[in-house]
């Protein structure tokens, strides 16, 4: 006998699922995840390819990532070759889907990579650049899900106001470090945008990438150069980054006879439940450690 009740129930459930259908957004890094999550709210599902602590320069996609990108409505990468060998672009191309680049519109800083000038991909390290990310992400969400346009715009405005406030706060905090002491030494050149925006000199023993694929790794000459510059500039503390083995920076600190200022969030944000799990928390903790170590 035909079960009418089951048919009606199925129809109702289908109606409910169609009404509450949310778009899925796949993003490459944890920073983009957090910014997107803050704009998407309850109206979209956001999935990050990288987990906290994973390195975008060296990451190699797995089968699950292919499925994530194939099932996504919106795909967002950092760009500027942060994703080593352009792995997010490859995933999007393989899935036959358009790719949004969060750094579109940012004027990139140039850095030296094995004697070649390349664009610095670590653009999110200033709230001003993060505002460009927010604009690009919000535009993508509004375009793919116009029904929730007002909610995306509302959340994006709140996030931009928070970024503006963060920018003012950082300027106020770093102002207590005398200009001659604003020398930021970290594992690799991730902090060039931050340093340029807030008046620091940035130096690192490793080049722009942490991976061997772009010739990363410290040479004895570079290490000696860093130790010498630390001594010449009378640097008080140096920092290691959460995604990179601190062994090298400890050796450099020992050679230069200075202290370690702590770990900074760089290419990845913190685990869930840590202060660095949000963009603003990550920036706040970095600034507090830098100010404490250098003032």
């Amino acid at each position: 006998m035909f079960n009418y009740k089951a048919l009606i129930l199925t129809c109702l459930l289908m109606t409910v699922s169609v009404c509450s259908a949310e778009i899925t957004v796949a993003v490459s890094t944890t920073q983009i995840y957090n910014l997107t999550y803050n704009i998407a709210g309850d109206d979209a599902k956001v999935l990050s390819i990288l987990a906290p602590g994973q390195d975008p320069h060296t990451y190699q996609p797995v089968t699950k990532d292919i499925e994530t990108v194939q099932n996504a409505d919106v795909i967002i990468e950092n760009g500027l070759h942060l994703e080593g060998k352009n792995w997010m672009k490859t995933l999007a191309e393989d899935a036959g889907k358009p790719l949004i680049t969060a750094t579109d519109g940012i004027i990139p800083l140039i850095m030296d990579k094995d004697g070649t000038k390349v664009n610095d991909p670590h653009a999110w390290f200033t709230p001003r650049n993060a505002a460009v990310y927010v604009n690009n992400i919000a535009k993508a969400l509004v375009k793919h899900d116009p029904d929730n346009r007002a909610s995306y715009i509302s959340r994006a405005k709140l996030l931009l106001a928070s970024l503006k406030s963060l920018d003012g706060w950082i300027r106020s905090e770093v102002s207590v470090i005398p200009p001659e002491k604003r020398v930021l030494v970290t594992n690799h050149d991730a902090f060039q945008y931050f340093a340029t925006e807030y008046g620091f000199i940035n130096t690192a023993p490793i080049g722009c990438s942490t991976g061997s694929e772009v010739g990363g790794g410290v040479t004895p000459q570079r290490r000696e150069m860093v130790v010498n510059s630390i001594r010449e500039m009378n640097v008080r503390s140096i920092f290691f980054e959460t995604t990179i083995n601190p062994k090298l920076i400890r050796e450099i600190a020992k050679d230069a006879g200075i202290s370690i200022g702590g770990s900074l969030y760089s290419d990845s944000m913190g685990d869930s439940g840590t202060p660095g799990e949000t963009y603003i928390g990550m920036m706040r903790e970095n600034v507090i450690k830098i100010v404490r170590g250098l003032k």
């Binding site: 709230p127 001003r128 919000a138």
Partner: peptide
Amino acid sequence: DPFALNIG
């Protein structure tokens, strides 16, 4: 304003 939302 660099922190403005440039949509709509």
